[in-house]
Nucleic acid binder design. Structure first.
Lengths: 118, 118
DNA sequence: CAGGATCCCATAGGATACTG
DNA sequence: CAGTATCCTATGGGATCCTG
């Protein structure tokens, strides 16, 4: 294996975690759901009402996905009718820096594009 | 408008630049293309060979997209047959921090998932 | 209430062939 | 060489209805 191949391999393995991170954040609804849960533990119906436009199907799907990724915790109360709440996990808090970074660059990018700088 | 609505509006406007940033990076091929161009100006065919698995159609599409977003610059040489090269712009360099941030979190995330911590 | 089931459409992306 | 055109599949996401 020669130098350029080594470099290439290094970059490929660098790419994997980046893709992981992007996948966790991606899709139309994950960020809005995180925002909704930022203000505290919420029930399914509450999130549904706060994240404007989301359907029950997508909310259900995204919450399950986020639970698998350890971003939210699902709590079931044994009442009738059943009550289910979702809450952000400590792990989700570690996303703060990434989101900040994305936001800052997004703002910079928008400014440059609008000013015709790029 | 009451307090919760104000908070909500603030968060929505915060979300926009984040989405912008995610959109610029997203898709299967943008990062690998950036990696390929990191080692310097390259021709269409060279990128095609370095980014394993990409089709001409996707490469063409992604390069155009990245050009619109000011990440790459396209240079046409008036030779026969025509020679075209692509090079990363200074603006694309500003992505460095975001990518670092994504990579670090992605690695942390993977560790936590694999260790069963989440 | 908290979803699942079903159906539908739009877009991402792949395969192959073709052209200035 | 540097793409474009065409056709196809898979996935994301929406709409609607149903149920424990």
């Amino acid at each position: 294996m020669e130098t350029t191949d080594l470099k290439h391999q290094e970059c490929i393995s660098t790419l994997r975690p980046i893709r992981d991170a992007l996948d966790v954040l991606n899709g139309k609804w994950k960020l809005p759901i995180i925002v909704a849960l930022t203000f505290g533990e919420k029930r399914f119906g509450e999130i549904s009402r706060e994240v404007h436009g989301i359907t029950d199907r997508m909310l259900s799907k995204e919450l399950r996905d986020m639970e698998v990724n350890g971003l939210v915790k699902r709590k079931v109360y044994d009442t009738y009718p059943v009550k289910v709440t979702y809450i952000l996990t400590p792990h989700s808090q570690t996303l703060g820096g990434v989101i900040e970074s994305l936001r800052n660059w997004g703002e910079l990018h928008r400014k440059k594009i609008l000013s015709g700088e790029v």
